[in-house]
């Protein structure tokens, strides 16, 4: 381990429960392993309890409160013994942190438990910077990237400076900001299939901004948004590749980018 390793600055080891998120679990496990690497580099002991599935947003945003509450209880139970809960997603972290307490507020058996888990839940990148005091990563990435601010992370958790701060320490990486990086990409969970034309217009505007940034790689912190934007970029034949920010920060960019064919 080199002398100036970010590990040195990190506080005592912490037990982190990785909330993988259902999308990373199913679609892009490499993001989960990038998160594990970053957390371990920051001095955390990581576990990924098998009793987790989804944070419940699909039900919550469809007005199905009962099922959302059931999933909230399941998640709280699976994670309450950890020092921290960390998710490689602003929207899932915000769901647990900002919405679980209200969802279970009227349930005397669960409200305090939900509050406790909520208070210890973080989005990955902001956890590294704000809780673990990480201010640099050891990674290389040759190329110009642009960063999309996913809505929940940005507006519910205030994540904006943190990923940029860490990206600035990736060797060889140049950040070229797009216009309207804080405007929704049109994903919105089930929104994108319920209102495909509106969603398409929104993601169309977004990829125009991405193209104008001149970046070769698009990064963001939420896989749903990334799949939406990558899907549109691919459909229009754009050559921009799309990755989760954790992959770049962890220096784990060997796997094909999102929507890209396997190399062999």
């Amino acid at each position: 381990m080199p002398q100036d390793s970010p590990l040195e600055a990190a506080p005592a080891p912490a037990r982190v429960g990785l909330f993988v998120t259902c999308l990373v679990d199913t679609m892009r496990p490499s993001v989960g392993f990038a998160a594990v690497k970053l957390l371990e580099d920051a001095g955390c002991r990581v576990e990924a309890p098998r009793a987790q599935t989804c944070c419940g947003q699909p039900a919550y945003n469809s007005g199905d409160r009962a099922d959302t509450q059931a999933l909230a209880r399941q998640t709280v139970k699976a994670f309450e013994d950890f020092d921290y809960v960390v998710a490689p997603s602003g929207s899932c972290a915000a769901m647990i942190r900002e919405h679980y307490p209200a969802l279970l507020a009227d349930d005397p058996a669960w409200s305090a438990r939900a509050e406790q888990v909520a208070a210890r839940t973080y989005e990955l990148v902001s956890f590294l910077t704000d809780v673990r005091g990480v201010n640099a990563v050891e990674a290389r990435f040759a190329g110009t990237v642009t960063y999309h601010d996913s809505c929940s992370g940005l507006r519910e958790l205030g994540i904006q400076a943190q990923p940029r701060q860490l990206l600035a320490t990736v060797q060889g990486l140049k950040l070229s900001e797009m216009q309207d990086s804080d405007v929704c990409c049109g994903f919105g969970g089930t929104f994108c299939v319920k209102y495909p034309e509106i969603s398409n217009t929104m993601v169309g505007d977004k990829i125009d901004c991405i193209a104008k940034s001149g970046a070769r790689t698009l990064l963001a912190g939420d896989l749903g948004c990334l799949m939406n934007m990558a899907g549109k970029l691919k459909r229009t034949g754009a050559s921009v590749e799309t990755r989760h920010v954790a992959e770049v920060l962890a220096g784990m960019t060997d796997s094909p980018a999102i929507g890209e064919a396997a190399k062999d």
Binding site: V20, V24, D25, T26, M27, R28, P29, S30, G32, F33, A48, R50, C192, V193, K194, P196, E197, S199, N200, V203, M227, N228, A230, G231, K232, K234, R235, S255, P256, I258, G259, E260, A261, A262
Partner: peptide
Amino acid sequence: KGRFAWLPFAGGWTRHRDFPAPQGKTFQ
């Protein structure tokens, strides 16, 4: 290909964009 141009029951998605293929095994 790394993506699907069409998937059953996902017309709302694939009408306008490709659907990125999963990597294969799940994280778990």
